[in-house]
Computed example of a mutant assay.
Amino acid sequence: MVSSLYIHIPFCLRKCPYCDFFSIPYENGMEREMERRYVNALKSELILRKDNIVTLRTIYIGGGTPSVFEAGSIARLLEFINNNFGIENGAEITMEVNPSSADDEKLRAIRQAGVNRISVGVQSLNDEELISLGRIHNAAEAVRALEIIKKYFWNFSVDLIYGLEGQTVGGWVRTVRRALSFAPPHVSAYELTPEADTPFGRRVMSGEAVLPEEDAIAAMYCSAAEQFGGAGLCHYEISNFARAGFLCRHNENYWRRGLYAGIGAGAHSHLRILYSGQGYSLRSSNAADLMQYLTNIEHNTLPVGETTIIDGCEGLKEDIFLGLRTAEGVSVERLREGGIDVAGLQGLVENGLAEIDETRLKLTRRGFLVSNRIISSIMDKIDAQRGHSPKSV
Rank of each mutant, 00 (worst) to 15 (best):
S371N: 09
R365H: 09
R111W: 01
G230F: 06
L78C: 03
Y38L: 07
S181N: 10
G312L: 05
G264Q: 07
E96K: 08
Y18H: 08
T55R: 14
E350V: 12
G387H: 06
M205L: 15
G232F: 10
S285G: 15
S392D: 09
Q278K: 15
D215T: 14
M205Y: 10
S181A: 15
L324K: 05
M30W: 05
F368V: 00
A288K: 14
I378F: 06
E333R: 15
E214N: 13
H8W: 02
E27K: 15
V393N: 10
R108D: 05
Q123I: 10
A218R: 08
A145V: 04
E298M: 07
H299T: 13
G171I: 07
L46M: 12
G62R: 02
I263F: 05
L5R: 04
E105M: 02
K151S: 11
G367H: 08
R256I: 11
A343S: 14
L164W: 01
L348D: 07
C16A: 14
T301I: 13
S331P: 02
C16E: 10
E35W: 01
V2S: 13
M205S: 15
S3D: 15
E27C: 11
A71H: 04
E337I: 07
E165P: 02
W172F: 14
R257E: 12
V122P: 01
M95Y: 04
R373H: 12
P99E: 05
N40F: 01
Y280F: 15
Q123G: 08
F11V: 10
I148C: 00
P185K: 02
L233Y: 06
G367E: 07
A71E: 11
I378P: 01
C19G: 11
L274G: 09
Q346R: 14
S3C: 11
A242V: 07
V68R: 01
I378A: 03
E314S: 13
V120A: 11
R32C: 03
P99T: 06
L42N: 01
G352P: 08
L294R: 05
E128F: 08
T307G: 09
E191Q: 15
F182M: 07
R76H: 08
E358L: 12
E252Q: 15
K362F: 06
E337N: 07
R203D: 13
S331N: 03
I9W: 03
V97L: 03
E128G: 02
